[in-house]
Amino acid sequence: MTQTEFTIHNTENNTDKKLIDHEVTDEALMITYAKGDASAFEQLYQRHKRVIFHFFIKQGLSTAIAEELCHDTWLKLINARETYQISAKFRTYLFTIARNTLIDHKNKKSSQKEETHADLSETAMAFNKTEISNQQRQLAQALKANIAALPIEQREVFLLKQEIGFSIEQIAEITTQHKEKVKSSWRYALQRLRKGLSDYVI
């Protein structure tokens, strides 16, 4: 086998492996982990760690608290591995745990406004590090402030749909609310944000 042939063959194998990894669904990985294969959990974590972290960050929480809630969420998933049923979609299941963790945190903490202000300053510092336009920086800060100002029900529906990409039906399942109520929360959240951000349309 020549060097070129070996390289081609190796590349094909890597492509197949990536394809196989991608084909394995989240639900199958979760079942595999429940049977004792911890590497399956690693794949699940790599797939969803960022979106879970952003879900907490977008709630107006500081990075430290968001990481702590991430840790709690994944630990709850680990402890509930044996009760997981494949009939439930993994992504919906994971965000249900994340939402419950967030609600528990909100119930414990009463200083929500202080956290929000701290987080806004952190966001400003983060944007200062990157080379972006001044207009983009102002827009990002304004959007975050307006999202944080939404009522809790509207905020979580907006984030789950706009940021994470869930449908109205999936959000109704996660929040255990009626579909029409979720739809109403979505509509009111859009109206508020549009009113608050109308000056930022380019």
């Binding site: 972290f53 952003h54 944007f127 944000l193 549009r194 380019i202």
Partner: peptide, 20 residues
């Protein structure tokens, strides 16, 4: 409203640096 918000999101800078 959805079209308006989507337009705003397209103008936002990428925030890939924010991860656990």
């Amino acid at each position: 409203d959805e079209v308006f918000i989507n337009a705003l999101y397209q103008q936002l800078p990428p925030d890939e640096e924010q991860q656990p």
